[in-house]
Design a protein around this nucleic acid. Sequence first.
DNA 1: CGTCGGGTTGATAACTTTCAAATTTCGTGG
DNA 2: CCACGAAATTTGAAAGTTATCAACCCGACG
Lengths: 247, 247
Amino acid sequence: MTEDRPLVGKLSAFASLTARELSVLADLHRRKRRFKAGVDLVHQGQTDQSAYILTSGWVCSHKGLPDGSRQIVDFQIPGDFLGLRSLLFRTADHNIETVTSIEVSEVQQNDLMNAFEAAPRLAVAVLWAASRDEAMVVEHLVGIGRRSAFDRTAHLLLELGARLKLVGMGTKAGYFCPLSQYMLADALGLSAVHINRVLRQLREDNLLTFQKGRVVFDDFDRLVARVGFDTGYLDHDGPTLREAVAA
Amino acid sequence: MTEDRPLVGKLSAFASLTARELSVLADLHRRKRRFKAGVDLVHQGQTDQSAYILTSGWVCSHKGLPDGSRQIVDFQIPGDFLGLRSLLFRTADHNIETVTSIEVSEVQQNDLMNAFEAAPRLAVAVLWAASRDEAMVVEHLVGIGRRSAFDRTAHLLLELGARLKLVGMGTKAGYFCPLSQYMLADALGLSAVHINRVLRQLREDNLLTFQKGRVVFDDFDRLVARVGFDTGYLDHDGPTLREAVAA
DNA sequence: CGTCGGGTTGATAACTTTCAAATTTCGTGG
DNA sequence: CCACGAAATTTGAAAGTTATCAACCCGACG
């Protein structure tokens, strides 16, 4: 993952990009911006939103319900692309909220469309990246629909660990995690109280400890085996396409 | 929706396509194929899959779990694109199974990549279509995570109705629905027994009747109001982009 | 020093699953 | 056209999981 422009690393995994394409991509990182923790970057219903490339900090995307509750769809960490959908559609269908203070590169609609015109294969690469994100949402859906609260919580914490490891922010030992139990609850479709009990059980079973903003894997291998975690959906390579696209 | 090539209709909603682009798109419908009900088009873990454009019949995409249960991620109806992810990634991360007998156009990896080369803006249009599908998965996730069994079931049946209406296969009165209660259960993260009870309640409340392969809306407006159904996530227009892309 | 958000715990209620069995529907061959 | 078996639907009762309500604790912060 290229430290300064993490998106480059991601897209390169799909198709080796030409110098020209790399420079077009670099151009997208022109507009640097910072946001405080706990603010909305994108709000459900707003129109003509920008997208962002996250360079530091955590954010979450969620949808609010009429009854006041909400469902967190996904968390994003450095290197992730934010709000592609809210840029492609006229009006945003979800919220994007900062979890910590963050740094991003802002990508406006014209920026992206111009980039696609200048380097058409970038659109294919972004399509690939978007599909990888969708695969994560799907896995999340499976977890909420068919896994127990215990397994589902472990899965989320394992997935975040795997993703953070890819960008050098986590190890098999653990990682720093700025999420509150309320946020975990909203992501997992559970109540905060129940999340608390699940975390306690994970701790008492000596599988993992989540306290004071840090996730520690007390027994990584046993945890993975216990909840049937498989990273398959995270590391898709697209090598079959490399030639076709490079052609 | 163009009867013969429904995909054209969908993509045209995003950007008006040139004659050349339309002809490239038409080329994708070369390889017609048929499948019986209850077979796998794509199987989790298989490599080098094709994608398909569904022209008649229903299919579902689902993921299996180690314990033998499964989660249905989405249903597809005529006009939908199937298995884009299993084509972009080397190995398929989910199954695609026919619900009824179907007719499809098969799209192989090279077909699609060549099409993108010949008409680069098609990649952007497909990206847009894929994002719309993702929006549906996200809405499904929200339903499973934060809505009651009752609301969630009603939502699914309303969504299918709305989508079928778009392709002329349903009205405000109802539609033909080939799904079994087991399939609904696997889609909604519930047990088949509970689905049955929810359907009974919907019937007894005079909201909707699902029997003998037909969904009848007994009181469409009251149902929509009762469960807070909002089609917002289904009908995204991409007009802001039309100019930019057409430029 | 008081307040406030986040975490923790117990008791109770609500919702959903599981198990088991009866009933209906539907395709197929006689 | 009817009989038959398999699959789908339906219902009841009991068990299990998770939510809700209500406290209490704690550390950060103005």
